[in-house]
Design a protein around this nucleic acid. Structure first.
Lengths: 153, 153
DNA sequence: TCAGTCATGTCAAAATGCTGACATGGATAC
DNA sequence: GTATCCATGTCAGCATTTTGACATGACTGA
């Protein structure tokens, strides 16, 4: 009798909390909570911060671009942008010559706010990164990417 | 002149999309979307499914327990439970002898619904798991856990 | 006994996000 | 040219989730 091993079933445990999905959600929720708390002191929400960060690196992104980049719908992104404009952190033309996409840019105030908030956020990410063996970091990043792609329709 | 290397900075890239937080969010969002789509055919939302799954493994959990287990507030969990009760998938006493916590249980219909929906969800998780080198799965699970703990105050 | 603390359940209001729908500008096929 | 398709921005309505607040039951320490 030698079936090589009890052959851990494809879905190993009956304990949901052992599943990848659960762990993923848990880690993600923890990050979200930590960022939320940290950003509150800078009067920013997580989606707002995410938009600022993307705009800092790629000025001129459109609403739809930002929606894709922050993993929400165009409609949700639109609301975020309205808030950021209201706060004077971004500019957005009412019209454009070419196409429909309206390019968004950070104002000086926007850059300022982002730069101060960033230190708080980076401190959080540092806590995360330092907690895992440096050796595995790149593998972790790759695996997260791989999973995301495997699910992308 | 021989600084040993460009000495990859503690926060390696200026590209946000390379950060762990971004990848985490991306993977989590992809999973959420996939589950949402799959569960819709079973008339369940992701939080509803999560509650059913937890209750199947640990009958008698309270609303607060489920809130912690699904990473939402007590108030949100309460709304979810109301929906599940409305749909006849769970039972929840109006009062209790001991304490305030009201134990929730699955109805036969609840178990039934869970079992059919589960196959759809497991198929998704399978896509995820199969995409990553089996060797790294346990390390990945551990790292996700480690990160969550590192952030939990 | 009794005051203080904690966890639970719940109400109300606000914020946030999504689905569905529509109009417009651009690109493409014919 | 024109018909079709796609991406964008936006409106409206609905669902979900959170924050803030309050009352209740249980435990603890004085």
């Amino acid at each position: 009798m030698d079936t090589p091993a009890p052959a851990l079933p494809p879905h190993p445990t009956e304990d949901v909390t052992e599943h990848v999905g659960y762990r993923l959600k848990r880690a993600s929720a923890a990050l979200r909570t930590a960022m939320d708390k940290a950003l509150r002191e800078h009067d920013l929400t997580v989606p707002q911060y995410s938009c600022l960060e993307l705009l800092d690196q790629q000025p001129g992104l459109s609403n739809a671009d930002l929606a894709r980049g922050t993993f929400v719908t165009r409609q949700s992104a639109n609301v975020v942008l309205r808030g950021l404009k209201e706060a004077g952190l971004i500019t957005r033309p009412a019209t454009t010559d070419q196409g429909r996409a309206l390019p968004v840019h950070l104002t000086p105030a926007g850059k300022q706010r982002l730069h101060t908030a960033r230190t708080a956020v980076y401190a959080i990410e540092e806590r995360m990164v330092n907690a895992i063996p440096g050796k595995r970091l790149t593998a972790l990043l790759k695996d997260l990417d791989t999973m995301a792609e495997a699910l992308g329709e």
